[in-house]
């Protein structure tokens, strides 16, 4: 029910601050949805309603934004959401096997959440890390690249132990431009 979700006073202040950054309230929808997802773990229809009403925007509008992005969870998800890229580069580098392996390991199907609420598996579109294919993203955060079955096994163990993966992208190269 809608009334079980509420923003605290501090959060409301934060939302005001977000709003003041933009000329239009509409622009605040995305950051406020993030804020809500951080707090509640998802933005299901009741949370969407809360966001819309808090911002004074039509509920349909917020619903449209929330459903546009896979990164907003429209239902309760596992603590760790494993978004495995299934687009072209990852696909040809074995994304399907990775997904099958994950499914077997966790005993759920793609799109489902484990009973203990720890893990969800989803196949998503290109995450822009084709160079490290196959790869996955953990709960809209860290990328885990160059996946192998062994790497998956280790990841699951680590996550179960509460240990989040490290950043492992290529070292960032700062290019020196001529005048700086």
């Amino acid at each position: 029910m809608a009334d079980t979700y509420e923003f605290s006073k501090e959060e409301l202040e934060q939302i005001e601050k977000i709003k003041s950054k933009y000329p239009e309230v509409q622009s605040a929808v995305m950051p406020v949805l993030w804020l809500a997802q951080d707090k509640f773990g998802h933005v299901d229809s009741d949370v969407q309603k809360l966001v819309a009403d808090t911002l004074g925007l039509p509920r349909a509008h917020v619903h449209g934004v929330a459903t546009f992005y896979t990164q907003y969870y429209k239902e309760k998800m596992g603590k760790y959401v494993l978004d495995v890229c299934g687009s072209f580069s990852c696909q040809v580098c074995g994304a399907q096997e990775i997904i099958r392996h994950l499914e077997e390991k966790l005993g759920i199907k793609e799109g489902e959440t484990t009973e203990d609420g720890m893990f969800s598996i989803r196949e998503v579109e290109c995450l822009g890390a084709c160079g490290y294919a196959p790869m996955l993203q953990v709960t809209n955060d860290k990328y885990v690249n160059h996946l192998t079955k062994e790497k998956i096994d280790k990841l699951i163990e680590d996550l179960k132990a509460g240990k989040e993966p490290e950043f492992e992208s290529m070292p960032v190269v700062y290019h020196q431009t001529s005048d700086s």
Binding site: K49, R59, A60, G64
Partner: peptide, 28 residues
């Protein structure tokens, strides 16, 4: 139409890409 003419704002396009279609907010 619902945004600009009737101003009820009841419809939006949900989802993305080849899966999208117009819908009301859940429960509306």
């Amino acid at each position: 139409f619902t945004e600009e003419i009737s101003k009820s704002n009841q419809l939006t396009i949900v989802a993305r890409g080849d899966k999208n279609y117009p819908m009301t907010a859940p429960g509306e």
